[in-house]
Design a protein around this nucleic acid. Sequence first.
DNA 1: CAGGTC
DNA 2: CCTGG
Length: 299
Amino acid sequence: MKKLKFQQQFNLNYSLNCGQTFNWTNQDDCWYGVIKNDVYCLKQDDNVIYIDSTDSDCINTMKKYFRYQDNYELIISCISLDPFIQTAIQNFSGLRLIRQDPWECTLSYLCASNTNISNIRKMLDNLSKKFGNRLTFHDKQFFTIPSPSTLSNAYLSDLIKCKVGYRAKYIKRSAVFIDQNSYIFDELKIMNLINARKKLSDSCEMFGVGPKIADCILLFSHDMLDSFPIDTRILQTIKQYYRYLLDPEMYKIQNDKSTLTSYQYEYLSKIMIDYFGPYAGYAQEFLYCQYGLSDKFTR
DNA sequence: CAGGTC
DNA sequence: CCTGG
């Protein structure tokens, strides 16, 4: 058992359970999760997390994963721009963005279209059980998230057995592409958000990745903290609390339930990033959680 | 109808 | 569109 003390605010539950990541489970008063080929068991006490893991370098892995180096207080002060987000920040104080592995993040969000969090968890769990490697820890079974090469060789029919539905072809095609072109993740890291999003969502090789999922991948696994993914919850939040930031012409266009056009998506994204600034992604996560309070929180 | 996309 | 509530 090792320990990691955070100098600034940190809340493990919020960070793992706010819909950024989908393969952690709370069992026996401990958060269990798999990252790459290792199992981690985490508990929090004050600002310390206790770590039990198969990873001998788990302290450093966790420092990276929970963005230990981020200046949390600075970030919070940068985004505390109005009473609504201030409430969200108070309600979820200690929530941190997580730095995920690019492929694991991509696969998770390929599963995330047009469904709910509990179903995303099930899809990922099914994929891991069927295609991942089995690990044993604390007498429990865990499974790694399957690699691009494994999934690129999978039969579509076996993917469909994992209950991913129409996403099976997205997963298969993206896995084939990433297996052959894993360098794309390194290329993205040195691009700016706009170009990186375009590269991901316009690429017909990354089938199933549109602007929203691209923004999630860039925020959660490419250190683009300005990325502000706009999903249904965030769209509702913008309409309710940030409508005054929008050009009235633009507001008129999206008053129904249909999906945003890419033009509308890019417009809204720009407005919100201009407003919240370089750490807009942190703001997005607080707003996402806050919406969960005012609604049936499925998890 | 749910953290969209083709 | 798949699928589950």
